[in-house]
Simulated assay, not measured.
Amino acid sequence: MPSPRLAVFVVFVFNGAVFGSWAARVPALATQVGAQEGTLGLALLGASVGLALTAPFAARVCAALGARRVVLASGVASALVLPLLALASTPLHLGLVLFLLGSSIAALDVSMNIAAVGVLRELDRPLMPQFHAGFSFGGLIGSIGAAVAAAASWKPLPHFLVAAAVGLLVLLLVHRRVPGESGERDREVAVGPQPTVLRRPVLWLLAGIAFCSAIAEGASADWSALFLVRERGMGDAAAAAAYAVFSITMAVARLSGEPVQRRWGPYRLLIGGAVVASIGLATAVVVPTPASGYLGFALAGLGLAFAFPVVMDLAGEAGRRADGTGGERELGLVTTVAYTGFLAGPPIVGGLAHLSSLTVSLGVVAGVCALMVPAVWFAARSRARELAATPPESVPARP
């Protein structure tokens, strides 16, 4: 049987593989439903709506039922919805299926991050970047599978059926070792009521950082292949490899996350990553060569590697009680805002591309990455003020 740490890592891989499988086939799906950039952007908005309606409730469901049950249910739903994308015949149908996929991904994202926090506290180590490396490796696996399927002239349906079947098998093998077997209601009654997360500026700032990072990551995933096809004249198979390059650099960087975070600290790590990601996306859109596209998306993957996991770590720490528990609602808030950006970003990029071009819209995303720098600075100051105002006996221990 796998350890809880390995089981949660595999769930992250599974989630990334589902996303990478369909994100890299966006050009084929666009052709299938006859959508241009603007219409495709509206279809992608369906996933954003599904996520926005589901994510706010996911943390509460995890508290009531346990993260393990939510991981299993949402993971199975994600795999079953994936092949339905290949049956869409119009942009409207595609948007409706993406609504279902966004809902299942929202529940899976929240529950797997809550399960990861349980492992972090049990082992007393900052391992969140490594768990999110699993998502990147999953995205790599999914995008490579998509590139192979495109090169073999596979239609999306057989490709998605194979991906769903393999993913379901892996999920069923590991889900019993995911932490969070039962709900948390008894524990919450024992420790008493907690202050609302909506009144804490640091959580909104962390959510804003993750939101900007998610826009950039979602844009790179959903539009990198189409950008290289339509703006750089590459074939579908070669263009699909751009997301693989993005995922490789992100995954490798995240694997080194624990020592890097211990050495540089979370806030300096976030600022440095924002600068690198902004430079990378700017390189991809400013230098008009296929090689610069690969290089730019590689730098974007490197720069964005630590943003989401480090923010999740900081949110969990901000919600940690003196007895070492807590953080579910804080993670729920930040994840909700973050993944709204993750899935709302692509349709925004599509709308801008419709009005101008993909080059201009991805250039705007580079500017969004730069906005993370002042947000990190304000978040660090806000958290410092919170700690200064907290009685020493109420501050939880931290390794």
Rank of each mutant, 00 (worst) to 15 (best):
M1Q: 12
P2I: 04
P4H: 00
V10T: 00
G16M: 01
G34S: 00
G41E: 05
S48T: 08
S48I: 09
A52S: 01
L53N: 05
T54E: 02
A64R: 12
L82E: 09
L87H: 09
A88V: 10
H93N: 06
L96M: 15
L101F: 03
L108R: 07
V110R: 02
V117Y: 15
L120G: 05
D124T: 15
P126D: 03
P129L: 10
F131E: 07
F137L: 06
G138Y: 01
G138A: 03
S143N: 11
H159D: 07
A165C: 12
E181A: 14
S182W: 12
R185M: 06
P195E: 05
L198V: 11
P201D: 04
A210S: 06
G218W: 00
L228N: 10
V229I: 15
D236N: 11
I248D: 03
A253N: 08
I271S: 04
L281T: 07
T283W: 04
V287P: 13
S292L: 09
F308P: 05
V311K: 00
A318C: 12
A318W: 15
A318P: 15
G326F: 09
G326D: 01
L333I: 10
V334L: 12
F342I: 08
L343P: 02
G345F: 00
P347V: 00
T359C: 13
V360C: 14
S361W: 09
G363A: 14
W377Q: 05
R385D: 13
R385K: 14
E386S: 09
L387A: 04
A389W: 14
V395E: 02
